[in-house]
Nucleic acid binder design. Structure first.
Lengths: 159, 159
DNA sequence: TTAAGTGCAAACCGTTTGCACATAC
DNA sequence: GTATGTGCAAACGGTTTGCACTTAA
């Protein structure tokens, strides 16, 4: 976790008047110690690696705090559970391209597309709020290696 | 429901070897008798207006058949339930702009955006599959009239 | 006649919440 | 000391499913 992120998290705790608990520390380190997208369940696992006492309830409660402050972005990728994106506050305008084979997620930005969307919205009588683009396709790994690099990205289990 | 749609539904039933039941008829008429997006629950209500014997289970089972055949498009609009789009098979490349105030959904297409997305995907090493764009904003109704036209679009209740 | 379809109620599963206990301040 | 935070288990809500009954073909 870089220094800037650490500082942002400190500010977050202070401004909201939140207590520094061991569980919150473990969850924050887990969430922002990666640039990968994760689910509530994988975050629980990662946080428990740091502090086994972390409960599922606290993970969900902390996720709610982080998303409403904008430190995490909630993603709806068509699965029946949510993903969380720890890169959003640094790159608020990025979009996602997702591999259908291995669920690998790559981020991109495009001023051109944003401009076009803005024009279309205006023509349709809308004041634009947010834009979300999700491209699905196939990454090169399957073709090249016969298997994607990330086949294990989505399995989940309870404890 | 126009003649072309009717024909498509006939083909759908025949090709899948599905029986023509009163309940299916009611659900199909409800689903394709509108160009609006709907939820499973609103479809249940609409189908029951035609045949009160329709059950929630049959609605869900029929929705599964229609989406896997491509006659309906399942939409994930960030709510905790799914929307279904009956216009998709006629306009497979359209996207959505949604009013944050009233949940009004307007559809649009853009070859330019598709082209840009295609280029970006290629650069990132992806073979493009599908593209999904969701713009959120505010429609003009609230500003003009002080209220959106569609405030009742999303409430749901069980029976 | 009989396999496909249906309604009902229970199960499912990710997420939320009430409550009693623990703890940061 | 006390309000905030926590773990646990139960509740929640949209969706799915097992089962016995119905019905189209």
């Amino acid at each position: 976790m870089d220094h800037e992120t650490k500082e942002r998290l400190e500010t977050f705790l202070t401004q909201k008047g939140l207590r520094r608990t061991a569980q919150r520390a473990a969850i924050l380190e887990a969430a922002f110690g990666t640039t990968e997208h994760f689910t509530a369940e994988t975050l629980l696992t990662m946080a428990r690696d740091r502090d086994p006492s972390v409960s599922r309830a606290t993970v969900y409660r902390t996720l709610a705090l982080l998303t409403e402050t904008g430190l995490l972005k909630e993603l709806d990728l068509g699965k029946d559970f949510k993903f969380y994106d720890p890169n959003y506050s640094k790159h608020p305008n990025h979009h996602h391209i997702i591999c259908n084979d291995c669920d690998k997620i790559v981020e991109f930005e495009s001023k051109d597309i944003e401009q076009l969307e803005s024009e279309i919205s205006h023509k349709l009588g809308f004041t634009i709020g947010s834009q979300k683009i999700e491209i699905r396709g196939n990454c090169e790994d399957l073709k090249k290696k016969g298997v994607c690099s990330n086949q294990t990205g989505c399995e989940k289990k309870k404890t």
